[in-house]
Amino acid sequence: MNSIIETNQVTKEFVTKRGFLKRTTSTTRALDQVNVTINENEIFGLIGESGSGKTTLGLAILRLIDLNQGKINFFGENIYDLKKRQLFNFREKTQMIFQDPYSSLNPVVTIYKSVSTPLKVFHKEMSEEQVVDKVIQTLETVGLTPADQFLNKFPSQMSGGQRQRVGIARAVISDPDFIVADEPVSMLDVSLRADILNILINLKLKLNKSMMFISHDITVTQYVSDRIAVMHLGQIVEMGESGEIIKNPLHPYTKTLIDSIPVPDPNKKWNTDEIGGQISEYTNEGKNECSYANKCPFVKDVCRERRPDFKEVEKNHFVACVLYD
């Protein structure tokens, strides 16, 4: 399988200034030496809690933020080296689906205008008729039928589920190779999520798209993804086939995450023993220790002395934890 995205030691730091005259600075690593590979025609799931850096990685892969270190290859070419013209071509080949169906569409722009924009920018050779045709076709692909009815609507005249479909239509209309879907269903009602997830799967199956699916919800992620990476404080702590990650989680953090997922099974009542140590907020300050050491129930001295290597423990199953050295 060919890789479409390859990140190499990607690091992004955010500096916050505080105190009198903003002289105290503290640095947080949102991405800390991230190495992931996303294959062609694959949905790559990225899970993590809020603040784990998963959205930052999505933005980095689309070159929407600058990095402190590392490079990201798109079909073997570092996107951070692209010049203006090449960047324009890269924009044509990549797209994003957003979390919030209410904020991702301009309220005063019609659906037709929103969805047709990428075509009009990237395919200036198309006639207005061709554009209209393509918009209608795309809206029907995402289940907005009859599409005619939606062309002239404004976002406020549509439901959240319909808006999210418009967002997907806008992302796929210019036929990109790679799409980042950032929490695309987390703001939708449960009964509407399934259809959106199935549309995303069909983008892969029928249109051969590759995708990075970012979510905090493991159940949803494993439903759509071929492989899953687990992120914790800016680091990838585990990566593998999605079924494997769920059935056989190796990293203590992944185990806790999976244990905490609500499952629709009344026979699995939660007992009243509390799990997973203390809750308090930590940030990654780039120290030379395991990012999970402060919370890990299996923590050893060595965890605080160096970073665990990210290595292949079983076939295609990577983990960064000293327990598997």
């Binding site: 449960v190 009964s191 999520r193 399934a194 199935n198 493991i218 159940t219 439903y223």
Partner: peptide
């Protein structure tokens, strides 16, 4: 959960993904 009677409850339960791979879900 074992015997949902109302069609809405039934449809709702069919629309949520589980950790079992391969069970297709569908929306309402």
């Amino acid at each position: 959960f074992e015997n949902p009677l109302h069609p809405y409850t039934e449809a709702l339960l069919q629309s949520i993904p589980t950790l079992e791979k391969g069970t297709a879900i569908k929306g309402i």
